[in-house]
Design a protein around this nucleic acid. Structure first.
Lengths: 224, 224
DNA sequence: CATTGACCTTTTGTATACAAAGCGTTAATT
DNA sequence: AATTAACGCTTTGTATACAAAAGGTCAATG
């Protein structure tokens, strides 16, 4: 399997946790490859900022609260712009793709309400699909290029798993707002709605981080 | 020497021209290294978009007029934001660095007027230094991370070499406007002035591209 | 007891060797 | 003469071997 993809997925899915050292030998054994392709994969991940160089080798990057704030600021900027451009350039097929992603998203939320915990993965997927449809509609590969590196970070926290039904439904409503703004070629509205949408996402992730911190503090307390 | 840096510089300085195939063996001989470190460098350049994959190997990426438009749009977005944040967060040292870069910039322009063609390199440098001072003042490493990859592209065209005295002086004036907006913590003004500054840069590059195109057409005409 | 230095081990960096996949050229057949 | 099949050459992909640097351990010394 492709070493780059494998390691990236492993980081996103939390198999390799933040701070964990990624030894070449170890990864080579894990992927049944020699160190050469492993090293190339690591170099790529390093230039994307997913792993951070140590004195020797690299470790999975740890993102602080401040990182999250700044990365989401970046994302509002880029994705807000993408939405505004999508409103100007969208084709009928683009709209179709967005509607499709949104319906699937809605269906997955319904299944989630029926206690189908597996549907969370689909929710994440269809959410991504909706956002990608917008980015692709704005017809600017460079925006896509940078956004794809920005978007990965919050995934590391898997905060979607903490969403409750209300939050998911609100998110769906905002999607619909964004979609209709894009359909009506109302670029400023699309930009603002998208920006707000992403800020809401940021709030969720930050709240999630607070929760985790509290749990850690509790654990620390029981240590002595 | 570090293979990544070397190849990147060579691309920026035009030693390796757009479209040129970068064979591993060739680069290895050029840098007196084995193929292994060369391959790693290429992987990095690829993930930054400076080289583009072929069926076999890579070639120096060719940027179209559309690419330039989109990349500059991205840059206005990011660097405009950086300027606005710099206005909010700047320290006195930040302001000092900007003033310093600007004075040097002005001096270099003076030397350029006196027909010192070598000063162009310094002009490019001090211009970059000013922009970097702003990005660093906004205290957001992620912005810096992405901007550093965006900024490289226009350098490939070396359009600074085509600037005349008037354009350089106008650029200097805008720098001063941006600087004073940041000093006065007028974030919106800083953003707008920076955005306009970069749009002007874009116009120069695009005009430069037109010139090149004309010359090419003339050359083609003389071929038969 | 702490600190430093020498040695040993582990891990990364580079080179080389070998495997596999593209590409071009040539020759054969229709 | 054109098309295709096969061969060989070039170039990339992977593995392994070797060099160098970083880290850790243990003993000696203040």
């Amino acid at each position: 399997m492709d070493a780059y993809k494998y390691i990236k997925e492993a980081i996103i899915h939390g198999k390799y946790e933040p701070g964990m050292r990624l030894g070449e030998e170890y990864l080579a054994k894990e992927l049944k490859l020699s160190r050469t392709p492993i090293r190339e994969a690591i170099k790529q991940l390093e230039s994307e900022g997913l792993v951070t160089p140590l004195k020797r080798g690299v470790s999975v990057r740890h993102f602080t609260r401040e990182d999250i704030q700044q990365i989401y600021d970046l994302r509002t900027l880029l994705e807000g712009y993408a939405a505004s451009q999508a409103a100007l350039h969208r084709t009928d097929e683009d709209i179709e793709k967005m509607k499709e992603a949104n319906s699937r998203y809605e269906e997955a939320i319904e299944r989630y309400k029926e206690a189908d915990l597996n549907s969370i993965k689909e929710i994440v997927n269809f959410n991504q699909q909706f956002h990608e449809a917008i980015i692709s509609a704005c017809n600017n590969p460079h925006i896509y290029f940078h956004l794809s590196k920005v978007v990965v970070v919050p995934l590391v926290f898997r905060s979607f798993y903490w969403y409750d039904e209300f939050e998911l439904k609100r998110s769906l409503e905002v999607h619909k707002t964004i979609l209709s703004a894009i359909q009506n070629q109302d670029s400023e509205r699309a930009r603002v709605a998208m920006t707000e949408h992403i800020y809401q996402g940021r709030d969720q992730v930050l709240a999630h981080l607070e929760e985790i911190k509290k749990i850690h503090v509790l654990k620390e307390d029981t240590h002595d």
